[in-house]
Design a protein around this nucleic acid. Sequence first.
DNA 1: TTTATATATAACTGAATAATTATATAATCA
DNA 2: TGATTATATAATTATTCAGTTATATATAAA
Lengths: 107, 107
Amino acid sequence: MPDIEQLSDLCKLLGDKMRLTILSLLKERELCVYELVELLQTSQPNVSQHMRKLKAGGLVKEAKKGQWVFYSLHIEDKPFLNEFFQHLPSQKEKVDAISCEDLNCCD
Amino acid sequence: MPDIEQLSDLCKLLGDKMRLTILSLLKERELCVYELVELLQTSQPNVSQHMRKLKAGGLVKEAKKGQWVFYSLHIEDKPFLNEFFQHLPSQKEKVDAISCEDLNCCD
DNA sequence: TTTATATATAACTGAATAATTATATAATCA
DNA sequence: TGATTATATAATTATTCAGTTATATATAAA
């Protein structure tokens, strides 16, 4: 059972537009760093820093595949966030519109 | 249906230990400013500023009774926060331990 | 109508934090 | 091995934000 401080720290992570967008994108499927850079139209270091925080907060997990790093949601152990995540607007169209193949990454 | 920015703004409000504590206290019953000052062991202006933000974010509502202001939770219209609020640790003991009568306020 | 009480707002300060720029690490390929 | 690519980290800057101090408003009581 998480205490107030752990919960407020979690909310702080969710309380940033770019991070919350990242999480909503990851709801669709796992994504590599470069896909996130494209989807968010920001810099690679900026994505990396956000991913580090999300990972430290236990909200995402990473999988290294060769030289590429894929991130995916890790919220199965946080039932109190279920409804919230279900209500995140769908990003299906945006995520479907890109692929590692098109971006020449992760092939 | 709230968009990502509205949701991240809401999370930002929840992402502060004192504000999240206030909300968990209000889960028990409505409270006046001075009760919150006592429960949180902080200054009256600090409480007022947090309440203003929570009110602006639509998370609490206020009721003026004479010279006193009572705050209460307003989350019925936010189903995506239901589970989250249910998981906030109970503050029943703390809230039960104080009363306007003891504090000589709101009588 | 002066005084006291309850709460809010404003101005300020210091700390936290997001984004950028520059650099480092780590893996792959020629 | 040296060059290239993918990602991470460090250092810096600018902004945001929580808390304090001082002051204002508003209601009630003397």
